[in-house]
Design a protein around this nucleic acid. Structure first.
Lengths: 238, 238
DNA sequence: TTTTGTCTTGCGGGATCCCGCAGATTTTGC
DNA sequence: GCAAAATCTGCGGGATCCCGCAAGACAAAA
């Protein structure tokens, strides 16, 4: 059994290496990669079916790497090991998991024990393991109340990229008014309407404020934006 | 001689501990804190004049912690040890360094040797040590061409917070038109005007696009925004 | 003093954004 | 199969944004 570790921080990488050795005695080969792209290459070359992957790496992040790995071998088992539980990451992962694939999502703040348990559960038992906290984010984001629907999220991303209503309409094949409708829903859910009545009327530019709020709530993060930006440029180029 | 380490990642913290021990034999006491606020408390209690500080910690980040530490004892020597060289961080640090204080800024990607050298230079020799790469950012940001002036940067932050032109004018005690002038400079420097002539006219909402570009160029980052947001709310509350 | 340059402010107008209203279309639930 | 709910769309208008033009303020250079 082979395990591939994709993690750009040397300290974390060697810690992971140690954890894998300890938790999986049946593992006879541990390979390391220090960024997303070399991770993809290693996975292809070594035909590894077991990957531990950091999100947030410079160059090519974990989500993109995981996507191409899964595209080539949908039965690969991937354990994501991340510092953060940003809604943007959770959404990003959920978006790329293939039908029936097994994966895990563990925070770096978890104990040794939890990490080792997750390694065994995912790689040996083929069981999905999602950290409690991450689970919470998932629930909330999909759950009714203040959670954004996929449609709203997509609009949010386009707005955050700096597109006009007209451009978004064209891109999403909607009428101008529909885009503006969705924007209004977005404003409501992100709660960007000021308290009203106080002297603070007209203080916020709703469009930009929505982006600011989304960022501070971690609904969006920089890496999600960068991914979207690349998609956009690609689309414009063609 | 006492050294205080402020770093939220346990692995990095123990690595730092080791490095301090090795580089500074004259140091007889190493204290640790795992986030900004407890770092401030520890610094106050232990009267430590030597601090190694991570930027980007949850709760209270390194810049805020350093600011209060320096406010209480401006002669404290602080070595910043960070993963990133975002312009936002560099600006943030530059903004809070007291007159004549000695400090350093080393990237986590630097070698053992470089870290130890920096520790000795800053703590023993009272010499400022700025990582080559960070230096580059400093030059560029202050330097003529595409670098933003302080005035432009402030406007950028206000826009990114989602404020209206009118609100910014009031906050900065400027006329509406002046704010818009600065915005135009900003748009030019951030290069948000589309290529023109192609079918891509009017694709970008300049205001939001400027924020997107600033984020992707790391002129802004989430932690800088959060700090600004807190300042804003405070100001609104009063 | 004059000149030059940078910064500020006012005016005006075209484009865009925000959104209420109302009819058309689709989806959902029973 | 039909009614209720949700979504999409066009129209219109007020507010804001983006910006060219030009006059005054102030500082540094000539």
């Amino acid at each position: 059994m082979k395990v591939l570790i994709v993690e750009d921080d040397p300290l974390h990488r060697s810690y992971l290496h140690e954890a894998v050795r300890a938790a999986l005695p049946e593992c006879d080969d541990v390979i390391e990669a220090d960024n997303g792209s070399s991770g993809e290459v290693q996975a292809r070359k070594a035909r590894s079916e077991h990957v531990v992957m950091d999100l947030q790496m410079s160059e090519r992040n974990g989500i993109e790497a995981a996507r191409t790995i899964w595209r080539e071998r949908p039965d690969t088992k991937i354990l994501f090991w991340s510092n953060y539980s940003d809604e943007a990451y959770v959404r990003g992962v959920a978006r790329i998991v293939p039908e029936g694939a097994t994966y895990g999502y563990v925070l770096k703040s978890a104990s040794d024990e939890r990490l080792k348990l997750a390694l065994r559960s995912v790689f040996i038992e083929s069981q999905c393991v999602i950290d409690r906290e991450v689970r919470g984010i998932q629930q909330k984001s999909l759950g009714n109340a203040h959670g954004l629907s996929d449609a709203e999220y997509e609009i949010l991303v386009d707005v955050a990229l700096g597109l006009t209503d007209k451009a978004i309409a064209q891109r999403k094949r909607l009428s101008l008014r529909s885009v503006q409708n969705r924007l209004q829903q977005l404003y409501e859910k992100l709660d960007v309407y000021q308290p009203e009545g106080q002297g603070s009327e007209g203080w916020y530019n709703l469009r930009t404020r929505a982006v600011a709020v989304a960022l501070s709530r971690r609904v969006l993060n920089t890496s999600a934006l960068e991914r979207a930006e690349r998609d956009l440029q690609e689309e414009l180029g063609s």
